[in-house]
Amino acid sequence: MPIPSDIYEEKKISSSKGKWKNGLVIFLFIAPALFIYLLYVVYPIIATFEYSFHTWTTAGEKMFVGLENYANLFADPVFWTSLKNNIWVVLTSVFIQIPLGLIMALLLVSPIKGIRFFNSVYFLPFLVSTVATGMLWVFMFDPLNGIMSQIVSIFGIENIFWLSAPETAMLSILFVVVWQGAPFYMILLRSAIVGIPEELYEAAKIDGASSWQNFKHITLPLLMPTIVTSSILAIVGSLKAFDLFFVMTEGGPNGATEIMGTFMFKQVFMNYNTGYASAIAFVMFFIALTVTIVIQSINSSKRRKEML
């Protein structure tokens, strides 16, 4: 989600400054949104930061402990496992979900009949809520009565305990992440492909270009901005992952599918480690912020280069 700094630059010129002199009027327009936003987003983040330097005694007393929560966190192997798993989600999203979405999008603009039908059906997984999706796939991955075991048994593979074996649990959930998310990138990419001017392909046709050449030299380069946007969405979205993991495994077996979201949640609402959980939450916030700043600076330096 690139923040367009240019919206403002462009509009400055035609500003109607004089008519907004009344500061109170402006304030009244912005106030309701700002109030709720400060109350439910800004204040809680600051409070989380403050909590992360404290611990609560069993009597409910708040005690300052300095950086202890952070020191414990960085020494906690579960934290590193969950960070690693979050990175797996990011990589899966960018390198499997998006390419799969692209293939589906290309199919939907190819010369086959029934495009509308294919389009609707391909999109269905995205419409099922994440909680429902997680539950559905728990059954699909059932070792006894699940279709996934049925499928691999064709190849002579038996007794796979998909979600309850540490070796397969993460892969199984990532499979569902792809199943659910790919259609979203499909519609983003399809609308970008439809926007490519037909003339470009006609010119290429005269030059005798093959469809692969067309794809490589016309479609793909023109899709790059959408692919970049999709990747940013995928990265930011992956950092927020929670629902599927919580519903399917709650981070188990034995922490194999722990991600930062489930780790933080369990620390506060199951182990009542408010201070420690706040430290995890703040690290999550910090990572999201860093990623945002990095993406933003890449974006703006690219824009500057284009202007030169």
Partner: peptide, 30 residues
């Protein structure tokens, strides 16, 4: 969308940054 003063841009950015935030960072205080 109509004004240009500095505070305005700061308020706008404050709102926009929210798109990136993991809700986990707000759960405990809320």
């Amino acid at each position: 969308s109509r004004m240009k003063f500095k505070l305005n841009r700061a308020v706008f950015l404050l709102f926009i940054v929210g798109m990136m935030l993991p809700v986990h960072a707000t759960l405990i205080p809320i």
